[in-house]
Simulated scan of single mutants.
Amino acid sequence: MNAIDNSKIQDRDISLGLLLDFLAGTKDSPLVFHYDGRPVNPGYHVTEVKAGEFAALDCGANPEAWREIFIQLWDIEEGDRTHMPAGKFYAIIRKVTEHVKLDGSARLTFEVSDGVRPMQLYCAAMPVLRGGTVHVELAPRPASCKPRDRWLAEETRRAEACCGPTSGKNACCA
């Protein structure tokens, strides 16, 4: 089994606001999500958009709280359909905001299933416009240990602060 580098996943984890900002300028372009090494089928549907507020206790007994938006994609093939235009996806999300409060800065999670296999959770990378098509890479959302993640982030911050440009006597990396 391959280990997943959580720092790379977090770099790829965009918010709904960032996704919509990008799509606003590409409304006529087909929107293609990619997961598990392949693109979604041209007939995919956005079957549900939901927002949640969560409160939890992590494995270090630290309280956690966050907002998350889930977009459910049903990856099916339907007749002669093409991939959904970015503008249609944008309009679906805007329609949801008429009934559900969506925080544009909230964590964004995609739930994807072909209707046969169980739903899987994915985070999204920043969209890319290539050949007139908007591509969004979805990566599996792994479990993580938040206290360990915080410790690693602090160690990285310290190493970058210490080993960055130095001046005079303050050289901690030799």
Rank of each mutant, 00 (worst) to 15 (best):
N6H: 09
K8D: 13
D11T: 08
D11L: 15
R12W: 02
S15C: 04
G17N: 12
G17F: 03
L18M: 11
L18S: 11
D21S: 08
L23N: 02
G25T: 01
V32N: 00
F33L: 14
Y35I: 02
D36S: 10
G37L: 08
P39Q: 08
P39W: 07
N41C: 07
P42S: 05
G43P: 14
V49S: 05
K50N: 02
A51G: 15
A55H: 04
A56V: 10
L57K: 14
C59A: 06
A61G: 01
A61K: 10
W66M: 14
R67F: 00
L73R: 07
L73I: 15
D75Q: 01
D75E: 04
E77K: 09
G79T: 15
R81I: 02
K88N: 08
F89C: 11
A91D: 15
I92Q: 03
E98F: 00
H99W: 08
H99C: 07
H99K: 14
V100P: 09
K101R: 06
L102I: 07
L102H: 03
L102M: 06
A106L: 03
R107V: 12
L108R: 01
F110D: 07
S113T: 15
S113L: 11
L121T: 07
L121F: 11
Y122K: 09
V128R: 03
L129V: 08
T133Y: 00
V136K: 01
L138F: 01
S144A: 15
R148V: 14
E154C: 06
E155D: 01
T156L: 05
R157F: 06
A159F: 15
E160W: 02
A161F: 09
S167C: 13
S167Y: 13
C172A: 10
C173K: 08
A174R: 11
